[in-house]
């Protein structure tokens, strides 16, 4: 009787694991399979097909423009990091170490920016960029990305700096280090793992960004995510190419999010959950 009970509970938990696995993976697996299917196989649910790389060749050659889209995505993401991380690191250090009378207000401001719907921020900038002839430029996208990336990065790096002991910094001051020397020679190296983690989150966020690029680009500055729209044609969606483009969007994100998986729950809940 006991053995049957044990066996039954083993079976139930195995079934649970199977369902969970299917729930999590089915869309990813299906997209990955379709990315290697020929057009005629993509429009059937068959599991057996001769894999092809043609879809990747297709999206990177005329009339598709995915090489340009990929370049745009990479440049926008890198520029966003290059501006956001140094600025955020300095601000995070200041907010962690110094006393300000309005500090709480500044921290509330940082947090509340995460709840502003992007569509609200883009309305005035759409008008402004039109007047300044910055429509359809990468720099416009970088600026817009800063609206949510910079407060997020500042908050995260502040968390890491808070965790560092202050005694080393104080000793350096006593030894006669200047203010910037303390930051660059002591705090930043010690906080480096946290800064890199934050940079990766920043990269993921601007890589996946869709709404700003949708509204502010037309042709030259379109990014990968918005470029997917170009595969929706009058004759329907070209799913095998959509999947191939999807793989190219997905793979870097998988690698990067795997690298920061230990900080994932903490990072994306702004430290509300540790």
């Amino acid at each position: 009787m006991n053995i049957i009970k044990k066996l039954l509970s083993k079976l139930v938990s195995a079934f649970g694991l199977l369902v969970t696995t299917i729930f999590v993976f089915l869309p990813i697996i299906w997209l990955s399979l379709t990315a290697f299917k020929k057009a005629k196989d993509a429009y059937s649910t068959s599991l057996f097909f001769k894999p092809t790389f043609q879809n990747y060749i297709d999206i990177f050659s005329e009339p598709n423009t995915f090489s340009q889209l990929l370049t745009n995505s990479v440049i926008v993401a890198l520029l966003t990091i290059l501006i956001a991380i140094p600025v955020a690191t300095l601000a995070a250090y200041a907010l962690s170490r110094f006393h300000y009378r309005v500090k709480n207000l500044l921290l509330i401001w940082l947090l509340s920016t995460q709840f502003i719907p992007p569509v609200v921020i883009v309305i005035p900038y759409f008008v402004l960029f039109r007047t300044l002839h910055l429509m359809d430029t990468r720099i416009a996208l970088v600026l817009m990305n800063l609206s949510f990336v910079l407060p997020f990065a500042t908050w995260m790096i502040k968390g890491f700096v808070d965790g560092l002991s202050i005694t080393l910094e104080e000793a350096a001051f006593v030894e006669g280090c200047s203010f910037m020397q303390v930051i660059t020679k002591i705090t930043i190296p010690l906080a480096m793992p946290g800064i890199i983690t934050t940079a990766i989150f920043t990269l993921i966020q601007s890589w996946n960004e869709y709404l700003f690029a949708l509204i502010l680009t037309r042709k030259d500055a379109i990014t990968m995510t918005v470029g997917l729209n170009s595969l929706v044609t009058d004759r329907g969606v070209i799913w095998e190419q959509m999947s191939a483009a999807g793989i190219i969007i997905m793979i870097p994100i998988f690698i990067f999010s795997f690298l920061v998986r230990k900080h994932f729950t903490q990072g994306l809940t702004l430290g509300a959950v540790k």
């Binding site: 694991l17 993976f25 869309p27 996946n208 969606v237 999010s257």
Partner: peptide, 23 residues
Amino acid sequence: LKACLIFPYAISPALKGYTWRFM
């Protein structure tokens, strides 16, 4: 499996939409 739980979340929401539209 636990290590893989972050993947669906990390995918670009725009791509999520297309993936499900296909399926």
